[in-house]
Simulated assay, not measured.
Amino acid sequence: METKQYIESGILELYVYGVLTEAESLEVAAMAEKYLEVNSELVLIEKAILNLSSSFSPFISSDQFDKIKSKLELKHKVITLQTKSNSSSYIGWAASLLLLVGVGYQYFQLDDTKQQVTIVEQEITKLKTSVIYLEIKNQSTKEILAVVRDEDNKIIPLGGQTVAPKAKAKIYWNQKTDKVYVDASGLPEPPEGKVYQIWSLKLAPQLTPTSIGLLVDFKGNDAKVFAVDKTSGAEAFGITLEPAGGSKGPTMEQLYTLGKV
């Protein structure tokens, strides 16, 4: 092997670092004794390590640093470090660059995979939400049909009053169970801060209103069919528009619909 190829193989650096086997170290020592170029290169490497150690000396003990420095200086005279450029250096830099690019590529691939997993999870969540919504809507539809088709339910139509002549509603009242449902699809959407309140009315000997519930979440109820409190002995039903939370008594000026049993 030519001395140039031997020097560029990187074995001299490994020798200086002390990581070669005993046989390999003896071989390097023999080459250094035989060839001046090899010996000179070893001096340069040791000098470079000595200078590098000096720059990092604050991180090791002074005794340890002095021992390393004295061992290297005993073997060779101190000479000026010359700039060395060989193929092994380029190979080292190229390998480091390729490693960096590879790690970066893997990072971006992993990040892209994580984003795709997140998107899939979001789609699954949306799908589950849609399924739950459809199940609730289907159940609500079944309940509404059961109310409408129940022959025990008495249907009381409620007509519009002065404040809302075009308003209308229906009461489904089961006089056996006292359950009451309100079909409010004929009522306009209540203004912000207002709510419809349902009243069970007794007309004689005097008008006696009893609140049987509020039509809460009016906008969110697509079918506009609401279950309210049970009542018995009602002679009429009315719906008024009240402040959010309802009122103790009906606001007659805001009576939207009224109907006798």
Rank of each mutant, 00 (worst) to 15 (best):
residue 2 E to K: 04
residue 70 S to D: 13
residue 167 A to W: 01
residue 28 V to E: 03
residue 234 A to E: 07
residue 254 Q to G: 00
residue 92 G to N: 13
residue 191 P to E: 08
residue 246 G to R: 03
residue 44 L to T: 02
residue 87 S to A: 14
residue 78 V to L: 15
residue 30 A to I: 07
residue 220 G to E: 15
residue 166 K to Q: 14
residue 151 E to A: 11
residue 26 L to T: 07
residue 135 E to T: 12
residue 140 S to Y: 06
residue 204 A to L: 09
residue 214 L to T: 01
residue 224 K to Y: 09
residue 186 G to R: 03
residue 195 V to S: 02
residue 95 A to Q: 12
residue 154 K to H: 08
residue 243 P to G: 08
residue 180 V to W: 01
residue 233 G to Q: 12
residue 239 I to W: 00
residue 94 A to I: 07
residue 92 G to I: 07
residue 185 S to R: 09
residue 124 I to A: 04
residue 13 E to H: 14
residue 168 K to W: 07
residue 71 K to N: 11
residue 89 S to P: 01
residue 36 L to S: 10
residue 177 T to M: 04
residue 104 G to W: 03
residue 149 R to N: 15
residue 80 T to L: 08
residue 249 G to L: 13
residue 13 E to V: 13
residue 137 K to Q: 13
residue 25 S to F: 01
residue 33 E to F: 11
residue 118 T to I: 10
residue 165 P to H: 11
residue 87 S to F: 10
residue 138 N to F: 13
residue 58 P to A: 08
residue 209 P to F: 01
residue 52 L to K: 15
residue 147 V to F: 01
residue 121 E to T: 07
residue 166 K to C: 01
residue 129 T to P: 00
residue 49 I to P: 00
residue 73 E to K: 06
residue 149 R to C: 06
residue 45 I to V: 14
residue 159 G to N: 10
residue 147 V to C: 08
residue 260 K to G: 09
residue 187 L to F: 06
residue 253 E to V: 06
residue 119 I to H: 05
residue 115 Q to S: 13
residue 99 L to N: 15
residue 171 I to L: 08
residue 23 A to V: 08
residue 233 G to M: 13
residue 103 V to P: 06
residue 146 A to L: 04
residue 7 I to M: 02
residue 255 L to N: 04
residue 245 G to M: 09
residue 28 V to H: 03
residue 106 Q to I: 15
residue 125 T to M: 08
residue 141 T to D: 10
